[in-house]
Every structure is written in C-alpha cells, then in structure tokens.
Amino acid sequence: MLNYIWIGLVVIALIVGAINGRIEDVTQAAFQYANTSVEIAIGLIGIMALWLGIMNVAQEAGLVSMLARAIKPVSKRLFPEIPPEHPAMGAMILNIAANWLGLSNAATPFGLKAMEELQKLNETKDTATNAMATFLALNTGSITLIPATIIGVRVTLDSQNPAEIIGTTIFASTFACIFAVTATKILQRLPMFKVKDEEIIVADNTSQPENREDK
C-alpha cells in the first residue's frame, strides 16, 4: 500500500511539476526534505534518550506493568493478542496518554518503544501485526484535548476567542479515533490484508521446506 502511494506521489509530482513548469522547485523540494528528515531524526536523539531512560527506570520499578494492569479491561479488547502485562502495553498507554495531553515530545519516544516491544511478539518481522495496526490507528487518529499549536496561531492572529475550537476539536478527533480503530478491526479480517501463510512459514526456521512448494 505504502509502495503504491509513494510511487504515486513521486510520479504525479514529476508529471504535474513538468507541466506546470515547476520541475526545478520539485527537485529542490526533494533535496530540502531529505535534509529536513535527517534534522528531525537527529533532533529526536536527546528527547528519545531522556524518555527511554525514564521508561527503563519505570519498568524496572514495576510501574509500567502496574499501569498496564490498571487498564486491562480496555486493553484486552483493543489488543487481544498482547498479554495484558507485557511491556508493550505500558509503553502504548504512556504514548496514548502523552498524545491526548498534547505532549508530542514524550509521545514519539514512548510510541517507538511500544513498536519495539510489539515487534518482539511479531512472527513475521517485515509485516505489521493486527496489534501494530490498531496502535497506529490510535496514534494517527489520536484524540486531541488541547490543540496548543493552532491556539497559538489564533492568538497571534488576534482571535476574539482563540480557544473556542477546543470543543469542536475534541469532538472531531474522538470521531476520527473511533473510526480509525473500528476500521482496523474490520479491515484486518479481509483476505487482501491477511498475513499470508507462506510469510509465517518463511519466518519460522523450524518449518519443513516442502510446506513452501504449493504456493
């Protein structure tokens, strides 16, 4: 999926850019964004180290699994494949809590930590699991309680009531969250999104080679 979207974006950009006479801008953008990507990643190192450090302390103190136990009733339904007290669960909760509070500096490190933990439970290492897709849906469709950035912009533009969009944002983002999570639960059953059997077999070293013949 990402494959087609990626090729689509690049090909459309090149064709439309050529027609619009903006091909130089397109080239320029490619270099500029390659740079920006590295800047973003490098900028993450310090914050990443800080939160991963704190997270490790919390984990060794048993705080993360305590948190995971606390929301077991909800997590059992959302992530049936993940053992309720697995470290992945604690990291996911911290990520979601940070997202809802608008603490994006903390959200990404917790989220990446959660992905690493989820990957440990993954049998097909290059393919997303159901739990990963659900977790991603909770992130892309994250509930926003305080849209701080846009409120800041509204303040600079002399809005009479910069915060008046908080209510509408909570409503819209909650809706997005429910739809995204429901969509993962429905789509994961469709044949086109199933994890293919041969992928599990290839990933599993103990399987017999003749299992692969019939595909």
């Binding site: 999926m1 990402l2 979207i5 990957q119 097909t124 290492k125 290059d126 393919t127 997303a128 990963m132 897709a133 991603l136 849906a137 892309t140 469709g141 819209a172 983002s173 809706f175 997005a176 969250c177 429910i178 739809f179 995204a180 999570v181 969509a183 993962t184 789509l187 994961q188 469709l190 999104f193 994890v195």
Partner: peptide, 19 residues
C-alpha cells in the same frame, strides 16, 4: 523495519476522513 503495512494506511485514512 516493517515494510508490509497491511491495513494500517487505509485504516488511518478512514480515520482522517471521518475526522
């Protein structure tokens, strides 16, 4: 290192559209 994202992209976009 996940390359096959399965239903994550469509589900995300459905959420975006709903939002």
């Amino acid at each position: 290192g996940i390359k096959k994202t399965r239903h994550a992209v469509p589900a995300g976009l459905i959420g975006d559209f709903a939002g």
